[in-house]
């Protein structure tokens, strides 16, 4: 097979993947008050990684982003379960969330909620599962 020249696709991917990842992080943090959240944030990050996979190959992807996506799924599940179990330490039912206002330097007064920790778990699980499915399908001959 003739070697093809993908310079346009690869150059555009370099710019576009940053925009997609930034937008997915925005969706992730916006989830509490506006449409968004862990699930579509994770799917969108996975979409950016799939775009990188499309324009480069699996070997290059493993070199620039050496994640073990199965382990990422496990870590996400662990974070979600630990967030839920952390409520038991304060003598309240399982999955009780709490929030408070904190003064963070640079950001000012923000309300931090433990639901974000649970969302991080969902985010990591969604990325991990999507990338595992796509990479295992792509690797089989």
């Amino acid at each position: 097979m003739k070697k093809t020249n993908d310079v346009i696709l690869q150059t555009v991917t370099k710019i576009i993947s940053f925009i997609i990842i930034l937008f997915s992080i925005h969706l992730f943090f916006a989830g509490h008050y506006t449409p968004g959240g862990g699930f579509i944030g994770g799917l969108m990050t996975a979409a950016a990684l799939v775009l990188l996979l499309l324009s480069y190959d699996i070997k290059t992807m493993n070199k620039i982003l050496p994640f073990d996506y199965k382990r990422m799924t496990a870590i996400g599940l662990l974070i979600a379960v630990l967030t839920a179990a952390g409520a038991l330490l304060f003598n309240v039912p399982f999955f009780t969330h709490a929030y408070d206002y904190f003064d963070i330097p640079l950001l000012g007064e923000t309300s931090l909620h433990t639901a974000v920790l649970f969302d991080i778990g969902v985010y990591l699980v969604v990325i991990g599962i999507t990338m595992t499915i796509i990479q295992t399908i792509g690797e089989s001959e």
Partner: peptide, 20 residues
Amino acid sequence: SRIVLGIFFVLITAPVGGHL
């Protein structure tokens, strides 16, 4: 600002889609 991002995104990706 998401609309601005959308304009920029469509401007970059649609011609590349046609090219491909």
